[in-house]
């Protein structure tokens, strides 16, 4: 990778009170790159995502987007700067319609060429259901809305926190097939997963988190699954 990466995280620690959920994490994501974070429950994956969008209680270290420090910026400003999050557990606005959910994603984001048509082309079922309330959709369809909501913000960096959670394998497969297409637009993607094989299959690079620390990083193709599994479980 040459020049400044899209996202660079430098010795980031995240605290909840006195508890340190992330400890001096270093990582980077380039434009047009899919980077996967793997780690067991409680490893600190969601804490990393929250810190990047500016919603962690207290952090130490630096988070830079295209070289600019995000410290002291509100989440709204970070979203406008081009970071969009698909939160863990989807977190749609359940009493809003599909269309309203998507429109809110568009409003909080930045100008760009991804529009409603692109989302409806990606997920045709959402066009049919656009007037329905989000809570009336199936889990998979809700996840599509959550991804669509983030994409409509026209992000430079897309953060996906466990988009496979609680979904049927077929649906997960469909969602993961979207990721390379999104990458083609030059968007950097940070994918958090507990499902190792699924996320390593799409990733260009990966980091493994254990109890708040990065204990392994590399390229999926160059790293044996045994080594990954051993680091994942802290063996």
């Amino acid at each position: 990778m040459n020049g400044t990466p899209l996202l660079s995280v430098e010795s980031l620690s995240v605290f909840y009170g006195h508890f340190r959920a992330l400890d001096a994490v270093e990582l980077s994501v380039g434009a047009g790159e899919i980077v996967s974070i793997i780690g067991a429950n409680g490893a600190g994956k969601s804490s990393l995502m929250k810190a990047i969008v500016g919603q962690a209680d207290r952090i130490e270290g630096r988070i830079c987007l295209e070289g600019a420090d995000l410290a002291d910026r509100s989440t709204a400003e970070i979203a406008k700067a081009g970071v969009a999050l698909v939160p863990e557990g989807r977190r749609l606005f359940s009493s809003l319609t599909v269309e309203e959910n998507l429109r809110i994603g568009q409003e909080v984001g930045r100008e760009g060429d991804i529009g409603f048509d692109d989302i409806y082309r990606m997920f045709p079922v959402l066009r049919e259901r656009r007037r329905q309330l989000a809570r009336q959709l199936s889990g998979g369809q809700q996840q599509m809305v959550a991804v669509g909501r983030a994409l409509l913000a026209n992000p430079k960096l897309l953060l996906c926190d466990e988009i496979s959670l609680g979904l049927a394998p077929v649906v997960i497969g469909d969602l993961y097939e979207m990721l390379p297409k999104i990458r083609e637009r030059g968007i950097g993607i940070l994918v958090v997963e507990q499902d190792i094989s699924r996320s390593l299959a799409v990733a260009d690079r990966f980091y493994c988190l254990l109890e708040g620390r990065v204990n392994l990083s590399g390229r999926p193709a160059e790293t044996s699954r045994e080594i990954v599994a051993r680091h994942y479980f802290g063996g």
Partner: peptide
Amino acid sequence: AVSDDVAAADLIG
């Protein structure tokens, strides 16, 4: 949206 889930609203900006 904020009344539905204020934490989610904060997360997405």
